[in-house]
Computed example of a mutant assay.
Amino acid sequence: MTKPESKPVSASRTTITELMIPAYANFGGKIHGGILLSLMDKAAYACASKHAGHYCVTVSVDNVDFRLPVEVGDLVSMQASVNYVGRTSLVIGIRVTAENVKTGEIKHTNTSYFTMVAKQEDGTLAEVPCLQLETREDVRRFLESIKRKELKNLYRQELNNAKTNLQIEDELHKLQGERCLVGEIPKI
Rank of each mutant, 00 (worst) to 15 (best):
T2L: 14
T2W: 07
K3I: 14
S10F: 09
R13I: 11
T14Y: 10
T17Y: 01
L19V: 15
A23C: 00
G28E: 04
M40F: 06
A46K: 13
A46T: 06
A48D: 07
H51K: 03
H51Y: 08
C56N: 02
C56A: 05
V57Q: 00
V59N: 09
S60M: 04
V64A: 04
D65K: 06
R67H: 11
V76L: 08
V76M: 09
Q79I: 13
S81F: 12
S89F: 02
S89Y: 02
L90R: 02
L90M: 15
V91P: 06
I92N: 05
G93H: 07
V101I: 11
V101S: 09
G104R: 07
I106T: 14
N110E: 03
M116D: 02
V117P: 02
A118E: 03
K119R: 15
Q120I: 01
D122Q: 06
L125K: 09
V128R: 06
Q132P: 06
Q132W: 10
L133P: 09
T135A: 07
R136D: 15
E137L: 14
E137H: 12
V139I: 14
V139W: 06
V139T: 15
R140I: 13
R140N: 14
E144D: 14
R148A: 04
K149P: 02
E150N: 10
E150F: 09
K152C: 05
K152N: 11
Y155M: 09
Y155H: 11
N160M: 10
K163Y: 13
K163R: 15
N165T: 09
L172K: 10
K174P: 03
G177P: 03
G177S: 10
P186G: 05
